[in-house]
Design a protein around this nucleic acid. Sequence first.
RNA 1: GCCGGAGUGGCGGAAUAGGCAGACGCAAGGGACUUAAAAUCCCUCGGGCUUACAAGCCUGUACCGGUUCGACCCCGGUCUCCGGCACCA
Length: 876
Amino acid sequence: MAHTYDHQTVEAKWQAYWVQSGTFHVQEDPDKPKYYCLEMFPYPSGRIHMGHVRVYAIGDVVARYKTMRGYNVLHPMGWDAFGLPAENAAIEKGVHPNVWTQENVAYMKRQLQRMGLSYDWDREVNTSQPEYYRWNQWIFVKMVERGLAYRKRSAVNWCLSCETVLANEQVLAQEGKDGGVCWRCESVVIQKELEQWFFRITSYAQELLDGCDRLTTWPARVLAMQRHWIGRSEGVELDFPLAETLAGLKAIRVFTTRPDTIHGATFMSLAPESPLVEQLIAGRPEAAGVREFVTRVSRLDKATRTAADRDKEGVFTGAYAINPFTKERIPIWVANFVLYEYGTGAIMAVPAHDQRDFEFAKTYHIPVRLVIQDREGKLASETLEAAYEEQDGAGLLVNSGNFSSLSVSQAKQAIGEYVETQGWGKRTINFRLRDWGISRQRYWGTPIPMLYCDRCGIVPVPEGDLPVVLPDDVPFTGKGGSPLKESPSFSQATCPTCGGPARRETDTMDTFVDSSWYFLRYCSPKNTTQAVNPQAAHHWMAVDQYVGGIEHAVLHLLYARFFTKVLRDLGLTTADEPFTHLLTQGMVTKETYWCEEHRWLLPTEIKKDGGQRVCVHCGRTIVTGRTEKMSKSKKNIASPEDLCERYGADTARMFSLFAAPPEKDLEWSDSGVEGCYRFLNRVWRLVQELLPVVNGADTKPGSGESVLLPQLQRATHQTIKKVTEDLERGFQFNTAIAALMEFVNELYKFWKEYPGEVLTVAERAAWRTTVETLLLLLAPFAPHVTEELWETLGKRPGMSRQAWPDFDPVLVASAEWTIPLQVNGKLRSKIVVPAGSTKEQIIAGAQEDPKLAEWLQGKAARKIIYVEQKLVNFVI
RNA sequence: GCCGGAGUGGCGGAAUAGGCAGACGCAAGGGACUUAAAAUCCCUCGGGCUUACAAGCCUGUACCGGUUCGACCCCGGUCUCCGGCACCA
């Protein structure tokens, strides 16, 4: 018999069978509970990588398992197909983005099918096609109608050479210089004010925050990141009147979370971008210096601007305000660390109790006034070496008039109320979350369906005119801002209101828009009249299990939550949250190799030389680098294609599930892969060896008691229990597979001990059940080889339509218990007792144990602790 | 700095309502089969010690302390690593 099975033939056979029989096609089935299993859809970059293998293997086991458990499972797949790489390919290779994308989709689809994934390909979506993106446009228009999409000027990173907006991540810091450079051409990046479209995600800030409390099964760190990103702070907004009223400006409004420290506010700071600055300095001698400072600061890109370790810098405006509580004149400064977009763009500065204000005050010799004293009472304004940012609730107010001697929390309350009764301001809540700017000066994205008419202003494209389709007559130069501007046929349009000439919006949408609702589109992917069919969405939503990378912890997962709420409010879904359970799988990593001369090396560029690993090119000793995420540049890549070729998809799937728990990083190991391949071959051979027994004619009559029978049954039912529990308890694939390996090891022992010739009819039947169960339990993990073996057992094909086996608790229990015996908590002996023995019987049995008696040395135990079926501990 | 997570053999990792630490796999070593190799099968495998065909003892889950009959698990403190955020008033 061959020692390995022919995975190539077997896998091709069953993949063809699944397609031809429509195994994975799914429709709403009212008779079954629904289960929506979804993995984050890929960007069609060209080839799938091990990260894809891992995430889709995880999702596929979930989907196949739930199907066998009797659920009506929706398991779709599609393509997040808009994005910059397609446009870069167009610039570099002259291939149209659509051609490049579609070719990649076709190739990657074959690769996914080669993995034997149980997708309903009839529901495939592709976000770059008009059938999909027209609904982005429809949703956009609805959001405009509801005030959830709007246009405003905002500062963006702008590359002077490429003439395009850059994301913050695309601005590279440069050593020794203020400001960053473009990642592509290394020219200076400036801040530029542009008109951009925004989604009012801040309208949902509180709901998005509250929702985090209900997503109890999401990973803690994802929730922590989302909460932090939303960043709710409670505080007070109040006016500081100007010492001398200026034309049209009487006061400056600030936001503070620390109203309790207000008596210590010895100056104010404005953001450099604040329009108030110009009003304050007009006509003053300080004006020129302030303007110079503002220009210098605002030239910096955002990342540099907001680096926390930047020195606190500022300039005095020459103007003063009145602290409403102390009535003192306090100077108004402009400071580099004050953000215009947060709060009111102006702060009251309390150097004694805020570290930034403290550093600023020390630099510019501004008075520090202590208004909270710590528990020991030794702090003093003059000797303070750092701000006392009271945390533990021990501090009490001092130098604060009627509020002195209140605790911090009491003072927050009292001063907040006082501000309101005086009419100076109000208690309020601020969020860090900003509205989502979605305009992109790019071609390969959804055209924003808006028109600009000189007479009628900004007008949405009427619903009947959607989609606004991407034009083909666009040159790809990589320069000149929005490529759509270069297409006259596109940018010139007619105003639907007045019939006059109009200019079409030439920016496209952020690709995160596409992925914010695709899970809803899968419910009714072919619908040509609606973005989402509400009935279908009602049936399938929410996604029961979402699987994807942690890198989307904030952006995609937050945007998707936002869109779900928007579409809910548009009446398209009843779901409040899109993803009930979230599994964030770890990265796939691999060891790296470094040669001093030839830099990063492939494993094939290394040879062994006298116990040392050396470079094949120069013979230098190899340095083993960190184990890192697989990347082309580090040359620590393993190829899914090679893997499928050599070992097959089943092995690839098994290894990526077995080598680590799903949420942890997985270190790729070629020998580990071999281990999984060996295991599948062991299963294969076991079934082959057993075939004559389980398929053969019943020749030997039954003969009374069987020793094997209960052992087979117990092993089988214990394994069903373990695998089922591991899958139910948070998808612990690694231990589920370990249990299957143990099971197979055990079955080989039984087979050796009780060879086929001696088996009774009943034992043969038990073997048959055992083997069938093994295949059923293994099927979600290794679907091809199990289908093949299932067929050799004479079964009808289609394991995914088989029911998941149940275990019988009676058969799980063993006939004997092994009870560890402890003396003073240390293991000293073990006894074997019949199952069901009582506490008294077990203790009596233990006391007859000679080894235990030795340890007890004739002493009577002070105390005997018995844990049901677990152990006995004698305390002496 | 703040937030989140994690520290267990040579390696990946098991075991938590507090109850036999190291399942399963890899690597390594030994053996069987073979002319040989591959494949396959069997055995050993945390450290130390005593005895050596058998067996036994001590020790061990980052570190220090605590609670408990009993701690990888709970509590207090320390260290290290990973990830995220980083002037948000």
